[in-house]
Design a protein around this nucleic acid. Structure first.
Lengths: 344, 344
DNA sequence: CTGTTAGCGCCTTCAT
DNA sequence: ATGAAGGCGCTAACAG
């Protein structure tokens, strides 16, 4: 059923291979037949069946995107969204499509052994995979599975700290800029600081704290693990009560602009003036996000969209050429000074 | 290359048809062979090639999601994100995957005639399509193309105002709740109101204004078209200067919580007190979003995630049963009173 | 330059 | 209950 290459060939009075050749312009074809075929294709609104094509070429022109940590959280943070934007942009440009891979119910309940993305790879549904938010530790993520496919040479790029000698990778020095944040506050005269850390970044914390201790021994940093941002309002209220009002923190590092925004609201509600009474330093994943708040929030800019672009470019380059110049890209973060930090 | 059904059959000492039968459990197979085949599948980590399977069955288990208006804007608003969340949730549950369809560069430059989603449909890459943000007018969206495939019985659901007698559809009465917003403000004693409308909703404006005029003739509503939200800060500043400070508007309807947030910031900057000097009423697509601001923003709750869920369920139901009880679902919006509206 | 043909991996009658 | 064989639509040799 449906229209196939054969119909087009018949109507154009040529053989199917001629049609195929035109489709893939894999050889020169006489003007006359060319036109006839084009006419027939238009006539039928012909589009080559991707199953058949894929069966032959074993390539789908689809890229899988997988964020461990559950389907709901993908669309949660500006960071992820910017990543997706970047990825999307280059995929569209290169004529690939993006498949969002998420676990089915079976996985969540019965602890199926194979993560969905592996299934997709084996089924040839995707030509490559982009991962974000892998952590070296968590067994849930089946990290070893990822290493394995990477070692087999399957096209994978993961976004986040480099965890393995193989594989393509894109990173923004999370640990490093977190330490830098503390440094900025230190240089403004702060001594006691509250540091928000996302649950998924939990495992970085130790390293960050260690570096702070050794490099800035006079700084007192209180880490606080944050969950997804909507339920944090009350937590933030409590945090401010405890760390700012009670323990005397003079500054807060927010993990993203969403949190900074809530911080500002809560402070406004408590009539705590910013930056007079508390300084706020945030991370900005979308350029200019900090200017939308009042007061405008000083931040470390993490070029999430660029990272997405980088990841996708790296991946496609690898898919199409099977060789890459760099296997890892580190993105620079940049401090943007605005009005939310007070010099003590 | 790779492992195919043949390898599994060989190792298990059976024919490929037996393996196929087990794969699809389309007939009973002796216990013994069953076990042998299972063993072989495990051994090889076998996953059936989707191209071959699709070639036979003409189904991909992928659902296309398409938002006209450019790739970048997809991840822009909380509305879209909530829709995506809802869609994603039911697709994952039903073992479908989501393909983000966006136009390639050719489309944007050379004005190719076929929208990408049509290509995908013809190529059999997707089993169904979810559209959002269609407008009846704009020729760019190739709406007629959409109607055509809907009339052919292809599984499509579009999110937004019902525009055609055929096709599956999910809607939240945009016009209606916009009028309601004005009404709420009227009932609080406001007379002059600034109404933000997104560019994509431009075409609704006329209807809204007409209804306001006839139902609430004493209300003076100033519509203002808003673009994507990041560049609106200065616009909003100007708006407030012009409409609030100059023309004496006492209330603003924000088109989403992102805009409300910027409004609050700008007002704080201008030392305009909310709700004492200006009232703000917003639309809330994510439950509780209004509680994160200060003051907490009164809003109309539009259940975007539920809409996504509804859309996906409708679609899959149609795909799998080819018959649906309802062809259109209307979602109720709900007014949530908080602290951003002053009674005059 | 063009047509014929052999698969790609799987499902599905049709025999047995 | 099981195997053999044809064909889904397309591409890529191969032969002219």
């Amino acid at each position: 059923m449906e229209v196939s290459i054969r119909d087009v060939a018949n109507r154009a009075g040529v053989s199917i291979s001629t049609v195929s050749r035109i489709l893939n312009n894999t050889a020169t074809v006489s003007e006359k037949k060319m036109l006839a075929v084009k006419e027939a294709m238009e006539y039928y609104n012909y589009e080559p069946n991707q199953f058949a094509r894929g069966l032959k070429k074993q390539t789908s022109n689809m890229i899988g995107v997988y964020f461990p940590g559950g389907t709901d959280s993908i669309f949660e943070s500006a960071y992820n969204l910017e990543l997706l934007r970047g990825i999307e942009k280059v995929l569209a440009y290169q004529n690939y499509s993006m498949v969002l891979i998420s676990e089915s119910r079976e996985f969540e309940s019965r602890k199926k052994r194979t993560p969905k993305y592996l299934e997709f790879i084996r089924q040839k549904r995707i030509d490559g995979l982009i991962l974000s938010g892998l952590t070296s530790k968590s067994a849930e993520d089946n990290v070893d599975v990822v290493w394995k496919i990477m070692e087999e040479g399957y096209p994978v790029v993961y976004i986040g700290k480099r965890l393995h000698k193989n594989g393509l990778n894109v990173y923004a020095q999370f640990e490093h800029y977190n330490v830098k944040m503390i440094e900025v506050l230190k240089n403004s005269g702060h001594k006691k600081v509250l540091l928000q850390v996302a649950k998924v970044h939990n495992h970085y914390l130790e390293g960050i704290m260690a570096r702070v201790h050794s490099e800035m021994p006079d700084m007192e940093v209180f880490p606080h693990i944050t969950n997804s941002f909507l339920d944090t309002r009350e937590h933030i209220l409590q945090d401010i009560r405890e760390y700012v009002l009670h323990r005397g923190c003079t500054a807060i590092c927010a993990r993203g602009m969403e949190e900074a925004q809530v911080l500002l609201s809560v402070c406004a509600e408590l009539q705590i003036k910013i930056p007079e009474q508390v300084s706020i330093l945030s991370v900005e994943h979308k350029p200019g996000a900090g200017t939308l708040l009042y007061p405008q929030v000083s931040s470390f800019y993490v070029p999430a969209k660029d990272m997405g672009v980088g990841a996708a470019e790296l991946l496609i380059d690898y898919i199409e050429n099977r060789e890459v110049n760099e296997s890892s890209i580190e993105f620079e973060t940049k401090f943007i000074e605005r009005n939310s930090i007070r010099r003590l």
